[in-house]
């Protein structure tokens, strides 16, 4: 069973980058004997696709999509944003927090 072990190792190293198992295919592999194969859509960077080049702290609507309900910045592995844009997004979110456009935390 190469798939589960590969998956676990990729989860352990949280630094991102192109990982072989995710790159290899959308399928999550067999979940077990007779188990349903779950289908994972390939994630794409919203900023690259929609060609949004400036990430601004004033654009609350945009930034809100990358903030969890608790107020935390959503990790790249969940949103699919590329490294470059994630860095800009997180910087913008931090600026927006400072001027009370976004919360630091929601309880």
């Amino acid at each position: 069973m190469a798939e589960p072990s590969a998956h676990r190792s990729s989860g352990g190293s949280g630094d991102g980058g192109s990982r072989p198992p995710r790159q290899g295919g959308p399928g999550g592999g067999s979940g077990g004997p007779g188990g349903r194969k779950f289908f994972r859509r390939k994630k794409v960077c919203k900023f690259c696709v929609e060609k949004i080049d400036g990430v601004n702290y004033k654009d609350v609507r945009l930034l809100q999509q990358f903030v969890a309900e608790s107020g935390k910045i959503t990790p790249r592995r969940l949103t699919g944003v590329c490294t470059r844009h994630q860095r800009r997004v997180s910087a913008a979110i931090k600026q927006a927090r400072n001027i009370a456009l976004l919360p630091f935390s929601n309880r």
């Binding site: 060609k51 080049d53 400036g54 702290y57 600026q95 400072n98 001027i99 009370a100």
Partner: peptide, 22 residues
């Protein structure tokens, strides 16, 4: 109550460059 200062000139320059390229 609160204020924040952000330097924009480099960002503007970058945006213009991207726009020109596009």
């Amino acid at each position: 109550l609160k204020f924040i200062t952000v330097r924009m000139d480099e960002e503007i320059k970058r945006m213009e460059k991207m726009k020109k390229l596009r």
